[in-house]
């Protein structure tokens, strides 16, 4: 039969499932802590002593919610850094495409250059405002992601990059922006999951 401490550690591990390495590490730390506390109890490590040790430790969900809140800050920071890198590489790729297109005069669509330019500018503006106003919010990041994805797609369509045999440096820049937009999507999705998990843990308290 599982003891009080085992049950508590299992609950904590479940509540920390948003970060499996942290859940494993903390489960081991907390288990050692609770046994130390139970053994220090005047009655010895009895089920009652285990119960008291668990009660003094606090609710598993409260502890997990604090970790989740800290994880949001770290995830938000990483996501903003990824956004900055994506903006920089998209800008460089855009300039390289424009230089190449000027050489060849190969604009395929009237709409694509407008989307390429203004979706990028809109994403940049939302990103700058979001950074100063609501850094932990998902909305500016999601809008920037959409704007940059539209700009990149329009830029590639505009240049007909992969059909017309563009120079290697233009293709590499385009591949770089596609890779970064993929990574940025993954980070934004990760932040969304952590925000949702933290809200769930807080509401369950």
């Amino acid at each position: 039969m599982a003891g009080v401490i085992d049950d508590y550690v299992a609950a904590l591990r479940r509540d920390l499932d948003f970060d499996p390495p942290l859940a494993r590490r903390l489960a081991d730390e907390v288990e050692a802590h609770l046994w130390d506390a139970a053994e220090a109890d005047p009655s010895g490590p009895s089920p009652e002593a285990q119960q008291r040790a668990v009660a003094r430790f606090g609710l598993a969900r409260e502890i997990a919610a604090q970790f989740a809140a800290d994880a949001i800050d770290r995830q938000a920071k990483r996501t903003w850094m990824m956004l900055a890198a994506t903006v920089a590489v998209t800008f460089i790729a855009m300039r390289l495409r424009v230089l190449w297109l000027d050489d060849f005069g190969a604009s395929m669509s009237a709409l694509a250059p407008l989307i390429d330019r203004y979706a990028f500018i809109a994403a940049l503006a939302v990103g700058v405002i979001g950074w100063f106003v609501c850094r932990r919010s998902l909305a500016p990041l999601a809008i920037c992601l959409g704007g940059l994805a539209a700009s990149i797609a329009a830029g590639i369509a505009r240049a007909g990059l992969f059909a017309d045999g563009a120079p290697l440096h233009v293709l590499l820049a385009a591949a770089g922006e596609i890779a970064l937009i993929g990574l940025l999507s993954w980070h934004v999705f990760g932040l969304h999951r952590r925000l949702r998990r933290t809200a769930m843990l807080r509401n369950a308290q």
Partner: peptide, 15 residues
């Protein structure tokens, strides 16, 4: 304080 509250602080300081 609830003993568990020290662990988020320890991890935050380590980060």
């Amino acid at each position: 304080l609830p003993e568990g509250t020290v662990y988020p602080a320890l991890h935050r300081l380590e980060e």
